[in-house]
Design a protein around this nucleic acid. Sequence first.
DNA 1: AAAACATTTCGATAATAGTCGAAATGAACT
DNA 2: AGTTCATTTCGACTATTATCGAAATGTTTT
Lengths: 108, 108
Amino acid sequence: MNSDSAIQALGALAHDHRLAVFRLLVQRGRDGMAAGDIAKALGLPNSSLSFHLAQLQQAGIVAQRREGRSLIYSADYDAMEALMGFLTENCCQGAGCAPSVAQTKEQC
Amino acid sequence: MNSDSAIQALGALAHDHRLAVFRLLVQRGRDGMAAGDIAKALGLPNSSLSFHLAQLQQAGIVAQRREGRSLIYSADYDAMEALMGFLTENCCQGAGCAPSVAQTKEQC
DNA sequence: AAAACATTTCGATAATAGTCGAAATGAACT
DNA sequence: AGTTCATTTCGACTATTATCGAAATGTTTT
């Protein structure tokens, strides 16, 4: 994780609809959700949602896979942890006070 | 932490200069840093830095205090944890895979 | 191969964010 | 009380982002 990719991830999350999408996907876990279903769940026009999904994917915090006719999106937990680690890096002059977020990885 | 305040915090961090400021302050710990010193450290015009500091403060992830003539800024660790907790809320259908970031608080 | 279906791209428009020099504010020291 | 010093506000400009209907793309199924 470098500064540029962190900015992209943060910027992707820093939006009403995108944050809602991401949190929905985080709750869904590995199964993810089809684009159309997300649009229905959040009451967004397909074209708008598509725009936002592209940003989340481009930022690397959401993954896409095809299943039948549908495109399924899911949250990328590894990327989420990497982002958190980056934000707390060398916290308090390297006094080792950054939380160990490593456990998220195995548990998901 | 609600959606709006999370968006503000994420948006505040989703910028080149502001992320650099925040990470610098995270490393500094409670001591923080005067506005002028931050500007010097990052090579930014005072007016630009002031604009960005205001956003970080408005977002609640950076605190301000006066010391002599200087205004000292420091990272708000509690807010940072709250943000992380919000992002991982009900992760994987409530299977309890969210990292416990609570430890950061006591250690800083 | 054609029809049905899910999703993305296009296009035009509106709104918000970032930049930095110069002037203004306001606290502190003498 | 006036001067100095640190920081913020102002103003004008440029660039980026968000919106959504309609058309296009590309997959699957019959």
